[in-house]
Design a protein around this nucleic acid. Structure first.
Ligand SMILES: [Zn+2]
Ligand SMILES: [Zn+2]
Ligand SMILES: [Zn+2]
Ligand SMILES: [Zn+2]
Lengths: 140, 140
DNA sequence: AACGAAATGTTATTTCATTACTCTATCGGA
DNA sequence: TCCGATAGAGTAATGAAATAACATTTCGTT
């Protein structure tokens, strides 16, 4: 697997921003933040993001059209990566925080349905939008 | 609940198109198809879609930025609608067909995780993109 | 040096979604 | 009947997300 150290300049810039962010960031948001670093066009960001997602170092949140750094990047193994397991996300709509998790029961359930239906999944999206524990407490 | 018969003209036009379609359609795709019916602006379509989604008669597929008619609309009950249960989608990337399903094990799994994490879901997105049984067979 | 692969850079365009403002119809209570 | 609230509708303009097309650079290998 491509380790952090052999990412290209643009990929590193993007991943750094994502890692520092405490909420998902859109491609254009990243671009804005990286203008001072010399990035000018959306494609520069999108290409870096594509690579990072491919490597499992970042994830795209479909329901937000935004990206987050992988919370478990340190766990990645060269030969497996994130592609294998299904990753789910809990997105707090109040504070923006994203919790990345894997749930065996959920994976099993979907696999069972797919098997029965003859459907072969290539990519699975699971995203919960709601309110996190902390925000729930504050709101009470 | 608003039944089919008290939808407005625009809502009816949009729902009809979605129902006839054999694959998801984007808002602009719907707009193109409905120009001959007098629709001119994106907003007319988006407003109709918002309402249809709210009523559970249509669903938005986040990973495609497109919409489908609800496959189970006839099951809807006035007081509950689709909001309650979690709906999952299997999207064939080859033929475009979408299979809408509910899986209790998956719902339970997510509910269990949410309970443990203290997360309160408002809206859950589950979308599998891959290859359906028929396309799988043809490709073999 | 010559080559090819991967990454980069730039411009323009396409696709998706919303904001702001206006107008009209309808319904219920004062 | 008057009033205000709500909902739906129409139009124009703009913002946000993503890609197409094409030219150039970087770098390791032969
Ligand atoms: Zn991850
Ligand atoms: Zn929160
Ligand atoms: Zn449905
Ligand atoms: Zn298919």
């Amino acid at each position: 697997m491509a380790a952090r150290h052999d990412l290209t300049r643009n990929q590193t810039l993007v991943l750094d921003r994502l890692t520092r962010a405490d909420a998902p960031v859109s491609a254009y948001g990243l671009l804005d933040q990286l203008r001072e670093e010399g990035l000018r066009a959306p494609l520069q960001v999108y290409r870096a993001l594509d690579k990072l997602v491919e490597l499992g170092l970042a994830h795209r949140l479909e329901s937000l059209n935004a990206f987050v750094a992988c919370a478990h990047a340190h766990e990645h193994r060269a030969d497996e990566g994130h592609a294998t397991g299904t990753t789910a996300f809990a997105i707090c709509e109040t504070c923006g925080r994203v919790d990345e998790f894997h749930d065996h029961a959920v994976e099993e359930g979907l696999a069972a349905w797919a098997g029965a239906a003859g459907f072969t999944p290539r990519l699975t999206t699971i995203e919960l939008r709601g309110r996190c524990k902390e925000c729930q407490a504050k709101a009470a």
